[in-house]
């Protein structure tokens, strides 16, 4: 257990360092919502519940419409759920037949994400910090959760 924990710590430290470098580069992924969505912040668990289909509404009560940025999907879910894209795909595949939950809408680039979020009150997506535009409200950089996660896992 101790050895595993140590390995995680080293990995996370490396990731933190790398993201910091990205952040500096403006490559950090940032959650974005419609300015009228009624929310100004979102916890990581709330983000997971929305993107994994558990909650259909935003904390403010508006029906949620999550949007995936296809090119950054693997990085996003890795940061959000600590799972690979294959695991995420397998998760959604199990739910295909029940039809109760459906995966987020897929956008091909940052512009499409920004366009969907800017035009829908319940939409929630993610783009790189350098692609942010005025029509959306940035909520939180995913590096923060990583730091939180690092902090929470550290002890």
């Amino acid at each position: 257990m101790a050895a595993r924990t140590l390995r995680h710590l080293i990995l996370l430290a490396a990731l933190a360092w790398g993201c910091q470098a990205l952040a500096d580069d403006g490559a950090e992924l940032v959650l974005v919502v419609h300015p009228d969505s009624g929310i100004t912040t979102l916890s990581r668990d709330e983000a997971i519940n929305i993107f994994m289909g558990r909650h259909r509404q935003l904390p403010s009560g508006i029906t949620a419409l999550p949007v995936d940025l296809a090119p950054a999907r693997a990085e996003f879910y890795q940061l959000l759920t600590d799972k690979t894209l294959a695991q995420i795909n397998s998760y959604w595949a199990r739910l295909v037949f029940s039809g109760r939950a459906s995966p987020p809408r897929q956008a091909q680039d940052a512009a499409e994400v920004l366009d969907i979020v800017a035009n829908s009150r319940g939409a929630i997506g993610y783009v790189r910090r350098r692609d942010l535009s005025a029509g959306v409200r940035p909520l939180v950089g995913l590096a923060t959760w990583r730091n939180l996660q690092t902090a929470s896992t550290a002890p």
Partner: peptide, 13 residues
């Protein structure tokens, strides 16, 4: 997963 989502369909299966 079914419990996580509250998916009674999946649970039933």
């Amino acid at each position: 997963i079914a419990s996580f989502l509250g998916d009674d369909q999946l649970a039933g299966e």
